[in-house]
């Protein structure tokens, strides 16, 4: 623990602060330390009032998304050794209301996700006695990448459309909707299209691609959205051109 690094943390305590400010902490660190370890050190030794989220320490629970040197990152997957000699600025995720310090309000995301029927929709309940559905590895591969989302919301912090348009469903929620749409066992695409095809669904996306770049799990929400745009266009055409379609 010989080397040290300076960590600048955004602080905001609604009980005391009118608006956010920054505090600097000098933290001795070890080579395998990530930013989350540094925050734990600050809380334990330097300032117990620091508030942040984090649990699994293995990039799978999605708690610890924050802006690290202005980039959306998982604090448990950002090694301090990679910032050697730099000032590390840690802020709460962009584009979310700040509750306190590094903790943001994520209710909006859960609401958007909930509105997209994010579960398997089937026409009939399959009785347990029939056993599991069959699904080939290829069918699984068709949607598997989109099952990898850990809801860390880095993609929301990266997306300029999210910034200017609060109602936009956003990358992760749309990626999860796409995950179910592409699942061979699902028949809920029509249902989801109510939201995905609407203005605040995929059409708010201007194809920036930032979501996919920052995603720590290679979910590629941009791909999910572009593909949904293609299906949405076909649905639109079908509804207008085919007899019996309701425009």
């Amino acid at each position: 623990m010989s080397e040290t690094i300076t960590i600048r943390v955004l602080r905001y305590d609604p009980d005391k602060d009118a608006e956010p400010r920054f505090d600097d902490f000098i933290v001795p660190y070890r080579d395998e330390w990530v930013v989350l370890d540094a925050l734990a050190y600050i809380k334990e030794v330097l300032d117990p009032s620091l508030a942040y989220r984090g649990s699994c320490h293995m990039a799978v629970c999605g708690s610890c998304g924050m802006m690290i040197n202005r980039q959306p990152k998982l604090a448990c997957h950002s090694f301090i050794r990679d910032y050697r000699g730099q000032l590390v600025t840690v802020e709460p995720l962009d584009h979310f209301p700040i509750e306190r310090d590094l903790i943001v309000d994520q209710d909006g995301f859960i609401e958007k996700l909930s509105s997209l029927y994010p579960y398997l929709v089937t026409e009939h309940d399959k009785p347990l006695s029939e056993g599991p559905n069959l699904q080939t590895p290829a069918q699984l591969a068709a949607f598997r990448p989109f099952t990898q989302c850990i809801n860390c919301l880095l993609c929301y912090a990266a997306c300029p459309q999210v910034a200017i348009n609060e109602a936009f469903s956003g990358p992760a929620a749309l990626a999860i909707a796409h995950r179910y749409n592409r699942d061979s066992r699902d028949s809920g695409e029509e249902l989801r299209s109510e939201i995905t095809d609407s203005h605040h669904g995929v059409w708010d996306c201007t194809f920036v691609g930032a979501c996919s770049e920052v995603c720590p799990k290679n979910v590629d929400p941009a791909a999910a959205i572009q593909r949904t745009k293609i299906s949405a266009s076909f649905r639109w055409l079908k509804a207008r051109l085919l007899p019996g379609g309701t425009p």
Partner: peptide, 8 residues
Amino acid sequence: HWGCPWSR
């Protein structure tokens, strides 16, 4: 049946 992506 709820959609868990079990390996196949």
